[in-house]
Nucleic acid binder design. Structure first.
Lengths: 220, 220
DNA sequence: ACATTATTGAACCCACGGGTTCAGATGCCG
DNA sequence: CGGCATCTGAACCCGTGGGTTCAATAATGT
């Protein structure tokens, strides 16, 4: 959605054409959200420096001054857009990790860990997720706090949640005793590392290999 | 080296001041190199878009037209500078991996693998190495081939060399049979993954943990 | 109906920086 | 010494794009 900037012309909602428009049906917040979505899409496509605000306005189906009436400047636009997207990715990842809550204390954690690996990698392979990582690290020099914020909202959050689950499993005697934070890091590294080496590898086999190696190292 | 831009002022060679200068003692190529070094330093500090060519010229102790007489434009400047630096990092990493050639076929590979892990991580933690990774991925959207080229010169090269060594060790029966490419990927992932999570962690302990987990998973 | 608020398009201002030009200055080589 | 190549500094041209202004327009609430 929201990739054609014609969208707001073609919208079924009549009487929403051409110029002008006071407090329209779509509230102020929805419009702001549309702008942020458009911003994220264009930034992801072109990168920060190559993106001009006019293009964002077009993508959101909105005029340039409208953009500036919602966000103060290009920089805020970037920050907000990336952080919102990062939150979304983080939430999805967390939901996946939470699957591990249902692991029975007396059962083999192999299958659930493999499933989680697969699902996590699918989330990480999403175009959105890739874009978030890309955008955060691309401007890390210019906006260091943004990079930190994105890390906190995604990777660190996931690592922490995963460490919690692993700790419980280890306590149940289904993993060897270990530092759960380090174990979580290793799990995620095995999972996402290959993304750098072979961005186009089949996620499912990569995930299976990662889970296998993890269990060989951390299993009992 | 090459991080202080004072270097060419502090050079012993006198009579190298102020304006003018024909075919000076330092040949054309050395000057070109100085420019590339300066470019890398400034790009690493400010990022591509925030860097103006004038600043690079100053850093290299050279006038702006001189810069353009050696490299055609800002883009070439970036490509060249980053690729040269990437080659340097790649070479250093390869040298480390080559240590594994001396592993006796009948000895425990634990110690040498741990050493290699430590030394590799030290190379990867270098400011230069961090900068190369940063610069390559930062402009990946604008210069995709540069990102690919850097990956080929660093990560892929190292993975390939490491896979060769691991294959020999496995063949000698000191590692379980496995796909050496995948094993190398896992080794490197365990090593560099934690860099993302805790950029300031002690490299030596991270390396030790990585080697330990790797051997638990791949040892016999 | 009327004031209010949100929006629009288009024009506008202006700083920034990539890239060029040019007249001097300087060192090297024959 | 004279021709050649190189470098310098400073000025210059100009496209790009961030951000603003403004009159016109349209929906909303009362």
């Amino acid at each position: 959605m929201c990739s054609l900037w014609f969208s707001h012309y073609t919208e079924p909602m009549g009487s929403e054409v051409s110029t002008g428009g006071g407090r329209t049906a779509r509230g102020r917040i929805e419009r702001r959200q549309a702008i942020l979505d458009g911003a994220f899409a264009v930034f992801a496509r072109r990168g920060y420096a190559q993106t001009c605000v006019k293009e964002i306005a077009q993508e959101a189906g909105v005029a340039k001054p409208t953009v500036y009436s919602h966000l103060n400047d290009k920089e805020s636009l970037y920050r907000e857009a990336v952080e919102v997207a990062a939150d979304r990715i983080g939430a999805r990842s967390l939901a996946v990790v939470e699957q591990l809550r249902e692991v029975a204390a007396d059962s083999d954690p192999c299958a659930p860990l493999t499933d989680v690996a697969r699902d996590l990698l699918r989330v990480f392979s999403t175009p959105d997720a890739r874009a978030v990582r890309q955008l955060a690290c691309a401007e890390a020099a210019q906006f260091p706090e943004l990079a930190a914020s994105v890390r906190a909202r995604t990777t660190l959050r996931v690592r922490s949640a995963l460490a919690d689950r692993l700790a419980r499993i280890a306590l149940a005697g289904r993993l060897r005793p270990c530092d759960p934070e380090v174990a979580a890091e290793h799990f995620l590294s095995l999972l996402t590392g290959p993304l750098e080496y072979r961005p186009d590898a089949a996620p499912d086999t990569v995930a299976a290999q990662a889970a296998d190696v993890f269990l060989r190292a951390y299993g009992t």
